[in-house]
Design a protein around this nucleic acid. Structure first.
Length: 281
DNA sequence: ACCTAAACCTGGGCGC
DNA sequence: TGCGCCCAGGTTTAGG
């Protein structure tokens, strides 16, 4: 799923809907989705108020506060491949694949209740309580800068660190955070760069085009509310529509919109990789 | 240090 | 309808 545009779409919605709510209870039926353990997760979050929702790459960051001491802690959500975060009223019918529910109450005079439902068909995603600032900082260190934070020179510097295929570098979260398979494929198409090109052989001009292309596909992804190829949903269950605008991702056998050549699928790092042999050299 | 393959899991789509 | 097979947006880990 969920690459930067999808996670950012959700983050913005959550920011509007659940900030200020207090977590009053947690229900779950799959232990492995709660880290470090269900007990520690529940003890960590229950009674705290949601103070904000942030994001780093594909990781959602919920800032929570003890209402009395005001001490800040966090819980993180990674949606991996098939996770969904849904915001529902408690009386809404059950959603498919839900394994964790955070029950929320507004602090206001008239109590309003909501549920934050975590659906996970493939059980790869997780919710993680992080109590300490130090521990939080350690976790965030695993993520490189996001494309929007980079200028051409810094991007070129990252490219120079490895000769592995450019597509694999783009998807390496330690080097650059937020790019997954969909947007890596489409950005390389826009920039007219073959996905197997060794990263350190890109020219300054190619690097410049690629960075712009990443920004372009991310903006487009955001504009369409993300790509709901299969699992991804927004917080009220709606699909995004970027999947209707894929350039090469998932388009093997179709004709390139730019040159008419037939789009190919190869494997790179064990992942499906799509490109146009006509215009990506 | 670097690279690859496999593992983690379930579900949807397809062909037969 | 049912079964087997292939595919899947992410990340980590084991092994070479």
């Amino acid at each position: 799923m969920p690459e930067l545009p999808e996670v950012e779409t959700i983050r913005r919605q959550l920011e509007r809907e659940i900030v200020g709510f207090k977590i009053v209870d947690v229900w779950y039926d799959r232990e492995k989705l709660l880290r470090p353990s269900p007990r520690e997760f529940i003890d960590g979050v229950v009674g705290k108020t949601i103070a904000g929702v942030g994001r780093r790459g594909k990781l959602l960051i919920f800032k929570i506060q003890n209402p009395k001491s005001k001490i800040q802690s966090y819980f993180l959500v990674h949606l991996r491949l098939s996770g969904r975060i849904l915001v529902r009223s408690p009386n809404t019918p059950p959603d498919d694949y839900v394994h964790v529910i955070l029950k929320l109450k507004a602090k206001s005079q008239k109590p309003k209740a909501l549920e934050l439902r975590f659906a996970e068909a493939r059980l790869f995603g997780y919710m993680q309580y992080v109590g300490g600032q130090k521990e939080f900082d350690e976790i965030l260190k695993k993520y490189g800068p996001e494309p929007f934070e980079l200028d051409e020179g810094q991007f070129l510097e990252i490219l120079s660190t490895t000769r592995k295929p450019i597509k694999l570098l783009l998807m390496d979260q330690k080097k650059i955070a937020g790019i997954g398979n969909i947007y890596a494929n489409d950005a390389l198409f826009l920039a007219k760069i073959h996905p197997q090109t060794p990263a350190n052989t890109l020219s300054r001009d190619q690097a410049s085009r690629l960075l712009k292309a990443i920004e372009t596909v991310f903006k487009e992804g955001l504009k369409y509310g993300g790509a709901s190829d299969q699992w991804y949903r927004q917080v009220h269950g709606e699909k995004g529509s970027y999947q209707e605008h894929f350039k090469v991702y998932g388009q093997a056998g179709k004709k390139c919109e730019r040159c008419g050549a037939v789009i190919k699928r190869i494997e790179l790092g064990g992942r499906g990789t799509f490109y146009c042999p006509g215009c990506q050299k």
